[in-house]
Design a protein around this nucleic acid. Structure first.
Length: 468
RNA sequence: GGCCCGUUCGUCUAUCGGUUAGGACACCUGGUUUUCAACCAGGUAAGAGGGGUUCGACUCCCCUACGGGCUGCCA
């Protein structure tokens, strides 16, 4: 039964469609999603496309794909901020009517000149039109500025950052409606969050200062201020802001590299958030455990080793069919050919002996090569070395013995053990050429597992081929 | 320049005035083993610096240093 005070939670993710879904954005979305989903709330998606110059439908599509891959589903339709522009203008004019905003006729040149001249420490632009008599208004283009309080303080009660005090004198009368009648971000974000019923704004802490400005809009309209939670941004391994030179920054790149979505989710969840000593979470566990309190205030660095380790856990935890399904999606994302029906069947039969040692799907596929490959098996350099004359002779003597043996580990073991001691090689030395023959490489699952997975005929065929 | 935020092992973090400062990744050692991996056991490793407050400070306050953010008719 949902508890009444937690069932009205509404969070949102509001990216601007100017590129792919950034890994940091993915984490922000994840936090919002976890918070809402863990509390029976709603998670909404809004595309902040008011900047017509930079917004592209391709970017929106990429963001949606990224979210879908991460398994973050949203409630209702995707909201286009641009579509709400009339509503934004309406609110701007309401503010005008209420006297909490005013028309400013200062040109951009005038403002630029002010900024250039003011080397003073307090370079806050004060519009001369604040409080001007409407009768004195010229017939010129104007912007609508917020009538912001110029004294006193604005208090941000932030779930992550704590109580943050911003002195109002450091804030200017921000523009809410541009001279072309379109809204600025500062207005649009507030109007949309209010209209969409957003109760918790969880976003990057690059918006912490903006929260003060936005809070003024809430106050000007008499709207309820949402719960703020400004989370630190993700940094690269060197502690600098995450950028291209650190490697992958787009969520979809991680998919293409083969990281499982569940592992990615787990890693991102734990990056900058903790729940005691717990490290590995199923999605349900994460939803239940996630809270704003556990979010750290310092920026976290991306650590690929830990990402891999986390993904390894999830790879091992996953069901076989689910792994096959996600593997196929990975292959498509990485522009690689899908597994055929027959390969899929083999994969399902043999996946048990490779999945707990793989960290990514690329890794999994590589380790599964022995079952997916078709003859001739071409040994790599290291494997070739173990297929010397002596070894080939031994393999040759092995094949007839496999003809009628019971095809189980118990059936095979005595034969291989006997051959190992009889040849004087010992098991380790005997296993090497068998690995080379069956998989063409030196790093493989157990020889028994391989034989059982590929079957009697294929085993004999590969041994014959290698010993010929 | 101004304002805001941050700083515990290499990394992610626990700690919410009194702990031998805990866990995870990585690393090292040992064990197991059919190579690698996995697995098991153990180990190295931390409170940026300086002042306070306090019987006692990683924890509260101040300063400094360093890092980040904001300061747009971008979002």
């Amino acid at each position: 039964m949902p508890s009444p005070q937690t069932s009205h939670i509404v969070t949102r993710f509001a990216p601007s469609p100017t590129g792919f879904l950034h890994i940091g954005g993915g984490r922000t979305a994840l936090f919002n999603w976890l918070f809402a989903r863990g509390r029976g709330g709603k998670f909404l998606l809004r595309i902040e496309d008011t900047d017509r110059e930079r917004s592209t439908p391709e970017a929106t599509a990429a963001i949606l794909r990224g979210l879908a891959w991460l398994g973050l589903d949203w409630d209702g339709d995707v909201v286009s901020q641009f579509d709400q522009k009339d509503r934004h203008a309406e609110v701007a004019h309401q503010m005008l009517a209420r006297g909490t905003a005013y028309k400013c006729f200062s040109s951009q040149e005038e403002i630029a000149a002010f900024r250039a001249e003011s080397t003073a420490s307090y370079a806050v632009f004060r519009s001369p039109w604040r409080g001007a008599d409407p009768a004195s208004h010229p017939d010129l283009p104007y912007v609508i500025r917020m009538m912001a309080p110029q004294t006193g303080e604005t208090l941000i009660e932030d779930e992550v950052q704590g109580r943050v005090v911003i002195k109002n004198e450091t804030l200017d009368d921000m523009i809410v409606l541009r001279s072309d009648g379109t809204p600025t971000y500062m207005l649009a974000v507030v109007v949309d969050d209010h209209d969409m019923g957003v109760t918790h704004v969880i976003r990057g802490d690059d918006h912490l200062n903006n929260a003060a400005r936005q809070q003024m809009v809430y106050d000007a309209m008499g709207w309820q201020v949402p719960v703020w939670a400004h989370i630190p941004l993700i940094h690269g391994p060197d502690g600098k802001k995450l950028s291209k030179r650190h490697g992958a920054t787009g969520v979809e790149e991680y998919q293409a590299m083969g990281y499982p979505a569940a592992g990615m989710r787990n890693y991102l969840t734990r990056l900058g958030w903790a729940h005691g000593d717990m490290e590995i979470f199923t999605t349900d566990e994460a939803k239940a455990a996630f809270d704003l309190k556990g979010i750290g205030k310092a920026p976290a660095r991306l650590d690929f080793k830990k990402l891999e380790n986390t993904c390894g856990h999830h790879m091992a935890m996953a069901g076989d069919a689910a792994l096959l399904h996600e593997l196929q999606a990975y292959l498509a994302a990485a522009a690689r050919p899908p597994l055929t029906e027959a390969q899929s069947e083999l994969f399902l039969r043999g996946i048990y002996c490779v999945k707990d040692r793989a960290k990514t799907f690329a890794d999994l596929l590589d380790k599964a090569q022995f079952m997916l490959a078709t003859r001739p098996i071409v040994p790599d350099e290291a494997a070739q070395k173990s297929l010397d004359t002596v070894s080939r002779g031994i393999l040759k003597s092995l094949t007839p013995q496999l003809q009628n043996v019971l095809w189980t580990k118990d059936g095979l073991e005595p034969i291989l053990n006997h051959l190992a001691s009889e040849s004087g090689l010992g098991f380790a030395k005997l296993a090497a050429p068998i690995r080379a023959a069956l998989a063409g490489r030196t790093t493989t699952p157990s020889v028994y597992d391989m034989m059982l997975v590929i079957g009697r005929n294929e085993t004999i065929a590969r041994l014959k081929e290698a010993s010929a």
